[in-house]
Measured scan of single mutants.
Amino acid sequence: EEKRQVKQVAKEKLLEQSPNSKVQVRRVQKQGNTIRVELELRTNGKKENYTVEVERQGNTWTVKRITRT
Score class of each variant (00 low, 15 high):
residue 30 K to N: 10
residue 28 V to C: 06
residue 15 L to W: 04
residue 42 R to V: 14
residue 17 Q to T: 11
residue 3 K to D: 15
residue 46 K to E: 07
residue 19 P to G: 03
residue 46 K to I: 13
residue 20 N to D: 09
residue 35 I to Q: 03
residue 45 G to W: 09
residue 20 N to W: 02
residue 41 L to M: 12
residue 49 N to F: 14
residue 36 R to K: 14
residue 43 T to E: 10
residue 61 W to K: 00
residue 62 T to S: 10
residue 28 V to I: 13
residue 25 V to K: 01
residue 56 R to I: 06
residue 68 R to C: 05
residue 46 K to A: 09
residue 16 E to P: 02
residue 55 E to R: 05
residue 7 K to W: 15
residue 18 S to L: 13
residue 52 V to K: 00
residue 22 K to D: 10
residue 64 K to T: 14
residue 35 I to W: 15
residue 66 I to L: 05
residue 23 V to A: 09
residue 7 K to S: 15
residue 61 W to Y: 13
residue 54 V to L: 12
residue 65 R to F: 08
residue 67 T to M: 12
residue 56 R to T: 03
residue 30 K to W: 15
residue 24 Q to I: 14
residue 6 V to M: 04
residue 64 K to G: 05
residue 39 L to H: 00
residue 68 R to E: 05
residue 68 R to G: 03
residue 10 A to H: 01
residue 3 K to W: 15
residue 41 L to W: 02
residue 6 V to D: 01
residue 48 E to C: 06
residue 28 V to S: 02
residue 58 G to R: 04
residue 49 N to C: 09
residue 6 V to T: 03
residue 58 G to L: 06
residue 19 P to D: 02
residue 43 T to V: 09
residue 41 L to Y: 02
residue 22 K to A: 09
residue 50 Y to D: 00
residue 66 I to W: 04
residue 2 E to Q: 11
residue 33 N to W: 06
residue 14 L to K: 02
residue 66 I to R: 00
residue 1 E to V: 06
residue 64 K to I: 15
residue 56 R to K: 13
residue 44 N to D: 10
residue 4 R to A: 11
residue 8 Q to L: 07
residue 17 Q to D: 06
residue 50 Y to T: 01
residue 4 R to L: 08
residue 25 V to D: 00
residue 40 E to N: 05
residue 54 V to H: 00
residue 60 T to L: 08
residue 50 Y to V: 08
residue 49 N to H: 13
residue 13 K to W: 07
residue 3 K to R: 13
residue 12 E to D: 14
residue 5 Q to A: 12
residue 14 L to F: 04
residue 20 N to H: 09
residue 25 V to I: 10
residue 17 Q to V: 12
residue 33 N to C: 05
residue 35 I to D: 00
residue 34 T to L: 12
residue 60 T to I: 13
residue 21 S to V: 05
residue 64 K to L: 15
residue 29 Q to D: 10
residue 62 T to F: 14
residue 28 V to R: 01
residue 32 G to M: 04
residue 34 T to R: 09
residue 51 T to H: 05
residue 41 L to A: 08
residue 64 K to P: 02
residue 51 T to L: 12
residue 44 N to K: 10
residue 12 E to A: 14
residue 66 I to G: 00
residue 30 K to H: 13
residue 17 Q to M: 15
residue 22 K to R: 11
residue 5 Q to C: 07
residue 47 K to T: 13
residue 32 G to H: 05
residue 57 Q to V: 14
residue 13 K to Q: 05
residue 33 N to A: 10
residue 15 L to T: 04
residue 58 G to E: 09
residue 16 E to N: 05
residue 46 K to D: 06
residue 62 T to E: 10
residue 4 R to E: 14
residue 50 Y to F: 10
residue 30 K to E: 10
residue 45 G to A: 07
residue 33 N to G: 08
residue 69 T to I: 12
residue 50 Y to L: 03
residue 20 N to P: 02
residue 69 T to W: 13
residue 46 K to V: 12
residue 13 K to D: 01
residue 59 N to V: 06
residue 32 G to R: 04
residue 58 G to C: 05
residue 42 R to Y: 15
residue 10 A to T: 03
residue 64 K to D: 02
residue 18 S to I: 12
residue 2 E to W: 13
residue 48 E to G: 03
residue 60 T to K: 13
residue 11 K to L: 13
residue 49 N to S: 11
residue 60 T to P: 01
residue 27 R to N: 08
residue 39 L to D: 00
residue 7 K to M: 15
residue 39 L to A: 08
residue 6 V to P: 07
residue 20 N to Q: 08
residue 1 E to N: 06
residue 65 R to K: 13
residue 28 V to F: 12
residue 15 L to S: 03
residue 67 T to W: 15
residue 47 K to L: 13
residue 43 T to F: 12
residue 36 R to L: 15
residue 18 S to T: 06
residue 38 E to P: 00
residue 27 R to Y: 10
residue 9 V to M: 11
residue 28 V to A: 05
residue 69 T to H: 14
residue 46 K to C: 08
residue 8 Q to E: 09
residue 16 E to R: 04
residue 50 Y to C: 03
residue 32 G to Y: 05
residue 43 T to W: 09
residue 68 R to K: 12
residue 19 P to V: 03
residue 28 V to M: 14
residue 4 R to Q: 11
residue 19 P to M: 03
residue 51 T to M: 12
residue 23 V to K: 01
residue 16 E to G: 05
residue 36 R to G: 02
residue 61 W to A: 02
residue 1 E to A: 10
residue 20 N to I: 04
residue 10 A to R: 01
residue 57 Q to F: 12
residue 31 Q to S: 13
residue 16 E to D: 05
residue 30 K to S: 15
residue 31 Q to H: 14
residue 51 T to W: 12
residue 51 T to S: 09
residue 67 T to D: 06
residue 47 K to S: 11
residue 2 E to N: 06
residue 29 Q to I: 14
residue 60 T to E: 14
residue 62 T to I: 14
residue 56 R to Y: 10
residue 56 R to C: 07
residue 41 L to F: 03
residue 7 K to I: 15
residue 69 T to M: 13
residue 60 T to Q: 14
residue 35 I to A: 10
residue 60 T to W: 14
residue 35 I to N: 03
residue 35 I to H: 13
residue 69 T to F: 07
residue 45 G to M: 07
residue 27 R to F: 11
residue 49 N to I: 14
residue 6 V to Q: 03
residue 38 E to S: 11
residue 3 K to F: 15
residue 55 E to P: 00
residue 50 Y to H: 02
residue 22 K to N: 09
residue 52 V to H: 00
residue 68 R to W: 04
residue 34 T to D: 04
residue 5 Q to E: 10
residue 26 R to A: 04
residue 18 S to Q: 10
residue 55 E to G: 05
residue 7 K to H: 07
residue 31 Q to R: 13
residue 22 K to P: 02
residue 16 E to T: 06
residue 40 E to C: 07
residue 39 L to F: 07
residue 67 T to L: 13
residue 27 R to E: 03
residue 1 E to L: 04
residue 28 V to G: 01
residue 18 S to N: 15
residue 45 G to P: 01
residue 4 R to C: 07
residue 30 K to L: 13
residue 25 V to Y: 04
residue 24 Q to M: 15
residue 66 I to S: 02
residue 13 K to G: 08
residue 36 R to N: 09
residue 27 R to I: 05
residue 32 G to P: 02
residue 56 R to W: 14
residue 47 K to F: 10
residue 39 L to P: 00
residue 2 E to F: 05
residue 34 T to S: 08
residue 55 E to F: 12
residue 16 E to L: 08
residue 45 G to I: 04
residue 60 T to Y: 10
residue 28 V to L: 12
residue 39 L to E: 00
residue 49 N to R: 14
residue 26 R to W: 06
residue 4 R to Y: 09
residue 65 R to S: 15
residue 51 T to K: 04
residue 38 E to L: 14
residue 9 V to F: 11
residue 67 T to S: 09
residue 8 Q to C: 07
residue 15 L to D: 02
residue 8 Q to W: 02
residue 34 T to Q: 06
residue 7 K to A: 15
residue 53 E to T: 09
residue 21 S to M: 03
residue 62 T to G: 07
residue 69 T to D: 10
residue 69 T to V: 11
residue 4 R to V: 06
residue 32 G to E: 05
residue 29 Q to W: 15
residue 44 N to T: 05
residue 20 N to G: 14
residue 24 Q to R: 15
residue 46 K to H: 12
residue 53 E to H: 07
residue 52 V to Y: 01
residue 10 A to N: 01
residue 51 T to I: 13
residue 13 K to T: 10
residue 68 R to Y: 06
residue 69 T to Q: 12
residue 65 R to Q: 11
residue 11 K to I: 15
residue 69 T to K: 09
residue 1 E to W: 04
residue 41 L to G: 02
residue 24 Q to L: 15
residue 8 Q to A: 11
residue 49 N to T: 14
residue 11 K to P: 01
residue 68 R to D: 03
residue 42 R to M: 11
residue 11 K to F: 06
residue 15 L to F: 04
residue 35 I to M: 13
residue 60 T to D: 11
residue 2 E to D: 12
residue 51 T to G: 02
residue 64 K to H: 05
residue 25 V to Q: 01
residue 13 K to I: 13
residue 55 E to K: 05
residue 36 R to M: 14
residue 65 R to A: 14
residue 13 K to R: 08
residue 69 T to N: 12
residue 40 E to R: 07
residue 44 N to F: 10
residue 56 R to N: 04
residue 12 E to N: 10
residue 39 L to Q: 00
residue 26 R to D: 02
residue 62 T to L: 13
residue 54 V to S: 01
residue 42 R to W: 15
residue 51 T to E: 11
residue 42 R to G: 04
residue 42 R to N: 14
residue 61 W to R: 00
